[in-house]
């Protein structure tokens, strides 16, 4: 009996790295994984640290005193904060819904072997991945020709289509929809759009989830469009608000010697550092909460998308 279990235990390690090597792997992987998550935990701790503790021991994983002061101050930001939070959610939701609709509609005919212009439209979207007009011409076309300046369109439209997502979506169609199904639906007299919505979409739900998540994350993390097209504070998304706070703080601290009395006033009104850390927490929190649920979809999507396009 003991001999058997011994042999069994030995068999389990057959063609495995030795226990010692595996331990080293665990240490390396564990350290790297910890490095990936610790900075976020650190910022959360800082946001709950008391100003006095920071003055004496600096930012620390174990502050001398905890406090909710930073969050009280964040709420004092009032309208601007909620407005930015709203903007971020609004841009993310509208952008994702429209973007996914366009993506699915574009990818579906590219998967249809009987679509005559399939090759042309595949190339039409793929080509934009390898060549483009560049930042300035795109900026001038969007701003001067399409009127994207200080409006929500400027924060949504320039990111609506992503050829990479189209490839992911098309691959999902190819791997999960049997072509006979479409022929069967057509013979049953189903129109192209009703075939797509009633027959095909339910099958590719995981693909839609993947593309939707990637798009939503891209919109949530977006601030470059705001840097380019927006000057009106009412339209700032959360990410850009955070960036602007940092810029103001830098500006004042660098010029405080020149500004004299005015700077003392400015410094007093300056959002302090714990408060900015609290805003960081506000931004990351929705992602961190949803992350365990959406991770597997994104992994599935990226794995599929990287398969030869």
């Amino acid at each position: 009996m003991t001999a058997l279990s011994h042999r069994k235990g030995h068999a389990l390690r057959l063609n495995q790295v030795s226990a010692g090597t595996e331990l080293i792997f665990h240490i390396i992987l564990g350290l790297f994984a910890a490095c990936c998550i610790l900075p976020f935990i650190f910022v959360v701790i800082i946001s709950f640290s008391a100003e006095s503790s920071i003055k004496t021991i600096g930012y620390s994983f174990v502050p001398a005193q905890w406090s909710l002061e930073a969050y009280r101050q964040v709420f004092k930001l009032g309208d601007q904060l909620w407005l930015s939070y709203f903007n971020s959610f609004f841009i993310t939701i509208v952008g994702t819904v429209v973007s996914v609709a366009i993506c699915v509609l574009y990818a579906y005919p590219l998967f249809r072997k009987d679509f005559k212009l399939r090759g042309f439209f595949t190339f039409f979207s793929f080509f934009t991945m390898i060549f483009g007009g560049g930042l300035i011409p795109t900026y001038i076309v969007c701003k001067n020709l399409l009127g994207m300046s200080n409006n929500y369109a400027a924060l949504i439209v320039p990111m609506l289509v992503n050829p990479f997502n189209i490839i992911i979506m098309r691959t999902f169609f190819q791997t999960s929809v049997p072509f006979d199904l479409i022929e069967a639906a057509t013979i049953d007299g189903s129109g192209e759009y009703s075939t797509l919505t009633r027959v095909i979409l339910p099958i590719v739900k995981p693909g839609i989830a993947t593309v939707a998540l990637l798009t939503a994350l891209a919109y949530w993390n977006e601030w470059f469009l705001c840097l380019l097209y927006i000057t009106d504070r009412h339209l700032y998304p959360l990410q850009y608000l955070l960036m602007e706070m940092q810029r103001n703080a830098e500006f004042i601290s660098r010029n405080s010697s020149v500004m004299g009395a005015a700077s003392a006033e400015a410094v007093r009104n300056l959002p302090n550092q714990t408060m900015r850390m609290a805003v960081v927490v506000f931004i990351v929190l929705p992602i961190a909460c949803a992350y365990p649920f959406f991770q597997r979809y994104v992994v599935a999507g990226l794995t599929i998308g990287s398969v030869k396009g």
Binding site: F115, G132, I140, V161
Partner: peptide
């Protein structure tokens, strides 16, 4: 059928023309 499928591609294609291909002339 081709026409129906074209209407599906249209929104994305229009976007690509406006936001990706038009700026190429801006070069």
């Amino acid at each position: 059928k081709t026409l129906w499928l074209l209407t599906m591609v249209a929104p994305g294609a229009i976007w690509l023309i406006l936001i990706r291909y038009l700026p190429m002339f801006g070069i």
